[in-house]
Amino acid sequence: MTRRFSRITGTGSHLPARRVTNDDLVAQLAQRGVETSDEWIVERTGIRARHFAAADQGASDLAVPAAQAALQAAGRQASDIDLIIVATSTPDMVFPSTAAIVQHKLGIAGCPVFDVQAVCSGFIYALTVADAMIANGTATRALVIGSEVFSRLLDFDDRGTCVLFGDGAGAVVLEASDTPGILATDLHADGKYVDILCVPGHVAGGQVLGDPLLKMDGQAVFKLAVGVLDKAARAVLDKARMQAGDIDWLIPHQANIRIMLGTARKLHLPPEKVVVTVHEHGNTSAASIPLALDHGVRAGQVKPGQTVLLEGVGGGFTWGAVLLKM
């Protein structure tokens, strides 16, 4: 029996129209009595701008054009898709899933759809699940999307977090193949770190209970992130029987330039092999990796046949990596 593999055949992304520079954000925060500066933000994060969704835009509104761009790149129609997975921590509704809403907006019906919630590792988790479903014959062509409107979760009185995040969506078409595209995956989580990155609120009885805004212990996240990303990267390389030197591009979760370059150094990869979009997008959580992947593809950096390492780390605490051949 011939083994089924999966390959990425198209990528797409979408950013909301409103671009917010550091200077824009500094002026907004000053009105609230919160002091920061462009220099302070850039030095600590590498972020210079981010995009914020309009008040009437939800995660599905960003996901649909990203999905359409990926479908066009793959030469496929929405009707060719038989699985949709959306990675998001900011769904349109409590339920149904944002994936169901995206399915309807794409004008298709019948195929399985669901959301994955692993925060900034969400796209890695979703891609791993889609790969497994294609490998076992449950699906043949999947849309895997990361879409976030994290601006809705930000506490603009906390300069340590509100400057970090942005909104956006990225998508890939993943198709069954006779030759390996996804070479190896590796997923992990440790719930004892729930408190270092969370939104500790929920809806009950028509009211928000707890705090519905993002909380983060930045130093704890930084310390944990570099270590676990290195382990996940080495795990997928070992599974694929490859070396770090075989990697053409590292596309990490775009959270903080220091974490990203720290991970590259541990793998002895030069900065020139890291796809970086954090300076323009900020941290878009589950959308950041597919956004960066699409940017790399469309900029002519990431080419067919190259080996790419995707890796993410996020609240939960979750982390993981995917090694693939484009």
Rank of each mutant, 00 (worst) to 15 (best):
C111G: 10
M326L: 14
G210W: 00
P290D: 00
A233N: 05
C198I: 04
P271V: 06
D246L: 08
T90D: 02
S79W: 08
T98D: 05
K105Y: 13
A286E: 12
G316Y: 12
S147Y: 09
R298D: 12
W249E: 05
E39Q: 04
P290G: 01
P212T: 09
A27F: 08
D61V: 05
M216E: 03
T318N: 12
L197D: 03
L106Q: 10
T318G: 10
K231P: 07
G168K: 01
D248H: 14
S6N: 00
T318K: 06
E148F: 00
A240G: 10
A244M: 14
M1D: 11
H202D: 12
M242A: 13
E311Q: 15
P96M: 05
K266R: 15
R152I: 07
S151F: 04
E175T: 03
L324M: 11
F156S: 07
V275T: 10
D24Y: 04
F156D: 13
A87T: 00
R50N: 04
A255I: 10
L269W: 15
R152E: 07
A184K: 07
M133P: 08
G300V: 13
I259A: 01
A232M: 11
K105R: 15
V221Y: 02
K303W: 09
A204D: 15
Q31M: 13
S121R: 05
L267G: 03
V274F: 09
S79D: 10
V226H: 01
K223S: 06
V226W: 00
I196E: 07
A244T: 14
R159Q: 13
